[in-house]
Simulated assay, not measured.
Amino acid sequence: MSMYRPAATALAAALCLVTAACGSSSDVASSDSTTEAAASSSGYPVTLDNCGEKQTFEKAPGRVVVMNGASVAEVSTLLSLGLQDRIVANQQTYGMSEVPSRAEAIKKLPTGDVELNEAYDIPRETMLGLRPDLVLSVTTYGFDQKNGFATREQLKQAGANSYVSPQGCDDDPSQMTVADSYQLLRDMGKIFNVSDKAATLIAESEKNIAAVSEKVEGEKRPQVMVLFSNMSMGSNDFSSVVANGIINDILAKAGAFNAFENAAETTFADLSKETVAATDIDALVVIAYNDPDPAAYARKLLKEFPQWPAARNNTYVTVSDSMYLGPSNDLAVEKIAKALDPNAF
């Protein structure tokens, strides 16, 4: 997940991750964000209604451009489906992952030798010069002309389809759930005619999460503080604290709940040190982005707030890309659950 856009916007997009089916999500069965309208026995043509725009695919895309958008959801989803050879330019990076070798695999992808614009993504003329047949963006931000990007209409005129990821239509990841990660997988499965692979990944994730949730069912739900390691997002001491979004769904499935879920209606809460100190925190979940030692940051906070139950019990867990929109939410659920309730496993 790159942090090139202004910090608050970038992290919000990432959680679209946590940088990304659109609209109100959560209920895959009734989702109106992306629906398959037609498909022949060979799998094509496939038409998706994505953020109110119909995108028809006559064959599987072969020149995919993945925009930055402070996300790794899209590139990780493509990799999980074995579609890395379709990518001609990827701008999404994170540097670490719960999935072995994923960070290294992302680093090896072509970048298209793109010189980013002032909005820290692929400018219009460069995008068109890449000759894509599919462009992926975590939100509609990536297709906004005022930011210097190619619009969806301009891409269509150049022969390219476009796709905005879950919750990206309204650019509001605060309502995102794990179901949105499954929707992204399902949609990419349809577009690339690998629906069986997508279905297998979804089923495996659901099975893993169900097994974890069963182990912690009936246990006391710890009150958790989730924040980004060594990051400042606003005017207060604790401005990178997560209040809403997919992370709350992950916590719930791991048998915990967010101590600050009511602190803001948006994805992030901008909290004072006094507010944080006055809240009983049973455990810390620290999300690492380009921090080589997030555990050190967690220990620093526990030392700073010795009154927390988390400090007395030294209870914390560090995570990375599995906390965001993407194909690996089950890994976050399992890692958090095991750290918070090791006796259940």
Rank of each mutant, 00 (worst) to 15 (best):
V138F: 01
A296C: 06
L155G: 08
I281P: 02
V46E: 09
A210V: 04
S213G: 08
I122F: 09
G168V: 02
A39Q: 08
V164R: 00
C16Y: 13
S320G: 07
E104T: 14
K146W: 07
V64I: 15
I87Q: 04
A60Y: 00
M3G: 13
L11H: 12
A160K: 02
A12R: 12
Y316A: 00
K253C: 03
G189L: 06
M231I: 14
T200Y: 06
D280K: 05
R102G: 01
L301A: 03
S320P: 04
A105N: 04
M225P: 13
A73N: 10
V333Y: 01
V64Q: 06
N290D: 14
I209P: 01
E261I: 12
A160L: 08
G148Q: 10
K303L: 06
T56W: 12
K220E: 10
E115R: 10
C169Q: 12
P110Y: 08
T126W: 02
D330S: 04
L155E: 01
L78P: 10
V333C: 00
G326T: 11
E304K: 12
Y324V: 04
T318W: 10
F57M: 09
P309V: 04
Y120R: 09
L116Y: 13
P123R: 08
K59P: 02
D293W: 11
S25K: 05
L79F: 11
A295P: 01
N244R: 14
N313C: 00
M188K: 11
T126M: 07
F268C: 08
C22Y: 04
V285E: 03
S41T: 11
K273M: 13
A277I: 03
V135G: 03
T35N: 05
D171N: 13
I209W: 07
S239Y: 14
T275C: 06
K107A: 15
R221G: 08
M188T: 02
S71I: 07
M127V: 04
C22E: 11
T266N: 11
K300Y: 10
K335S: 01
S30C: 09
A269Y: 05
A283W: 00
L48R: 10
M188F: 14
A259V: 14
Y163L: 09
L301R: 06
K207D: 09
M225S: 11
D113R: 15
E217L: 04
V178G: 00
V72M: 14
A295D: 08
Q175Y: 03
V138Y: 02
Y324L: 07
A60Q: 01
R312F: 00
R131K: 12
T315C: 02
N208T: 12
K146E: 14
L301D: 01
